[in-house]
């Protein structure tokens, strides 16, 4: 069984308009997102700005109210507040944010920042609490004198590690990391990514890793979902996505990542422009009349793509035949 199952999750925001400010339409920030996260894995959720990836994350952790759909955790739907409380959900699921400076309270010392989730969920005495905080600092590679400093006294990478320390304080099962390294320099990013992998091995934590950086996602995630306009357009293993992208959007996204290989610069550019041309031509067929992606179709046991109906048919038949053969 999966650690957490997100099923047909929707988050719609009303648009008000007209003279009486009535609800005239909905912004479908998230519109029918389904995926599972297994225990101990890193699941990548990739999308450009406005794709709905962060809203999905917030709805999963309960910071944003789901319009419909379920998030099943230990057999209960945690989009409902009472289930979250019953299951101690907010103890088991923690979040790491992109901007470590604004997500840490500037008036609190690091000791209090890291101890906060402990105080909320575990009732430790002063000695025990301090011991735990020191352990956590040690895990993230910071000295004990960090305890009495304030967030602004640290560098971006150190602050991000403090954010991680706070997130792992309660030994969570799942950490939702929303663009955890986007604001960091390359050398610091490497440090934080290595460290996230290390504590995953140590504590068996699952990550929902949200990013627009396909290089980082490839490095971190075994399973990846590509999201645009509130829906997942392609989901598969790292290999499926990077070596056999099938949705036009994924192809374009991958082609746009700059390559560090200077020798193939021109080929890469040509390839990108070709894809861009195809994208401009075929884009319309890949979305329905409301501009939304089509339902996902299984093209292999691990790989699903939101193919347009005429392409989807082929695979549906295929899978039916396979079903007969087996």
């Amino acid at each position: 069984m999966s650690l957490i199952e997100i099923n047909d999750l929707k988050v719609h925001y009303p648009i008000r308009g007209g003279f009486w400010n009535r609800i005239v339409d909905n912004v479908k920030a998230v519109d029918g997102v389904t995926f599972n996260i297994e225990a101990g894995e890193t699941y990548g959720l990739v999308g450009e700005s406005g794709s709905g990836k962060s809203t999905t994350a917030k709805a999963i952790i309960g910071l944003e109210k789901a319009t419909s759909g379920t998030v099943m955790y230990k057999g209960k739907d945690v989009t409902k507040g009472e289930n979250r409380r019953k299951l101690d959900y907010n103890h088991d699921v923690q979040m790491i944010f992109q901007d470590s400076l604004s997500s840490l309270n500037p008036r609190k010392r690091i000791e209090d920042v890291i101890a906060e989730p402990l105080r909320n969920f575990e009732h430790l005495d002063k000695e025990e609490e301090k011991l735990r905080v020191l352990q956590l600092l040690d895990i993230v590679g910071l000295d004990a004198d960090a305890l009495y400093k304030y967030p602004h006294q640290f560098s971006g990478g150190q602050r991000q590690r403090i954010g991680v320390a706070r997130a792992v304080a309660t030994h969570p099962k799942l950490i939702i990391a929303d663009e955890p390294v986007s604001a960091l320099d390359l050398s610091v990013q490497a440090q934080v990514l290595n460290f996230m992998k290390k504590i995953q091995r140590q504590f068996g934590i699952s990550y929902l890793f949200i990013s627009h950086d396909l290089g980082v996602v490839r490095h971190m995630c075994k399973n990846i979902a590509i999201m645009t306009r509130g829906r997942i357009v392609e989901v598969g293993t790292r290999d499926d996505i990077y070596n056999n992208p099938m949705h036009i959007y994924t192809k374009r996204l991958l082609a746009a990542i700059p390559e560090t290989n200077v020798n193939h610069r021109e080929e890469h550019r040509k390839h990108r422009l070709e894809i861009e041309k195809i994208y401009q031509e075929q884009q319309a067929t890949y979305y329905d009349k409301d501009g939304m992606a089509f339902p996902l179709v299984k093209v292999s046991p691990t790989h699903s793509v939101a193919l347009p109906p005429h392409l989807a048919k082929e695979f549906e038949q295929q899978s039916e035949n396979e079903g007969v053969n087996v």
């Binding site: 390359l186 050398s187 490839r218 990077y242």
Partner: peptide
């Protein structure tokens, strides 16, 4: 050289990334 090695790339996806010591 350190910077190029600390970048996540196709050929190091399962490895640890190189971290430059210090600040």
């Amino acid at each position: 050289r350190s910077l190029l090695r600390s970048m996540p790339q196709r050929d190091n996806e399962n490895d640890e990334l190189y971290v430059i010591q210090g600040m």
